[in-house]
Simulated assay, not measured.
Amino acid sequence: MNHGEEVKDQSLKVKVIKSFKNFKCKYRNTDKSIFYAILADDSDFIIAKVIDRKGKKDFSKGASIIFTNFKYWNGILEMTEYTKLEKLTGPPVEVPMKIREKAKKGILLEEVKKLPLETIVSGLFNVNKWRKVKNGYILTAEDETGKMDIAIFNQVDQIILKDNKKMHFLGFKVDMFEPNQYEKKLQLKSTSQSFVQVMFLYSYN
């Protein structure tokens, strides 16, 4: 699928690995209810942004679903009220353990560093420390491949921050900032549709 492509004549069959809670945000200058979901099949996984769909029950963990009429935009699969979705009635979608584990982690920080600026990514990182700044927070995130700062300036009032906790970061963009005139650093930065959630031990059971 190409960047920004609207797909009407292709159907996808996937298993729901996890769905996250709803939150309110601006979408095309309109207040919308959105939630993210991690979907996978036997070859790979993808993050879906689900916009204004009342059937969140369709995204229960482990459900096999089929859908058409969706949009693929900057690494995110967008599903709206126009997306046609139903639960599979036949054999469920099988997801190999290797793909399932990859889907739980999302992108690794070493992979983020190779991406173009403005790319939208999602991942599960350990938060070692954080500090409050004007209108938001700066977090130091870490995984087995490295460290990176994450700047949060959206949905700030909905975020509960805890040291040394694994946290899901969904819908963040790759960004470059200049801490001083001699230095440039990569970071992840929130957008108006970003979402953060502490990982609970039972999240993927």
Rank of each mutant, 00 (worst) to 15 (best):
L139H: 02
D52W: 11
G4S: 04
T89S: 14
K49T: 06
D58F: 14
V50L: 10
L77I: 05
K114P: 00
V127Y: 04
G136T: 02
I46F: 11
N69C: 06
G136Y: 06
G62S: 09
G55H: 05
K61Y: 00
K49I: 02
D58E: 13
D41A: 12
Y27I: 14
D41L: 13
Y137G: 05
Y82V: 03
A103I: 11
K21C: 05
D42E: 15
I76D: 05
G136W: 04
L115A: 11
L108S: 12
K134D: 15
E101C: 03
Y137V: 01
K24N: 09
S33M: 08
E78Y: 11
P92M: 10
V112L: 14
E111G: 00
E110S: 15
E5A: 14
K18A: 04
V95S: 07
F35A: 09
S122D: 08
L117S: 12
D44I: 02
T83M: 06
K24W: 01
C25Q: 10
K54P: 00
N128G: 08
K15L: 06
R28P: 04
L109V: 09
V16C: 00
L124R: 15
K8L: 14
D41K: 13
W73C: 10
S43A: 05
A48I: 06
A40D: 02
V121M: 01
N74D: 06
S33L: 09
S33A: 02
L77R: 07
E94Q: 15
G55Q: 15
I66K: 15
K18L: 05
R131D: 08
M97L: 15
K87S: 02
K134V: 14
S11A: 11
S64E: 04
S11G: 12
N69F: 10
L88V: 14
F70K: 06
Y72W: 09
I120P: 03
E5Q: 13
P92Q: 11
G90H: 12
P116K: 15
L117P: 03
V133M: 09
D42V: 00
G4L: 09
D58V: 08
I51C: 00
R28H: 14
K102H: 07
L139I: 12
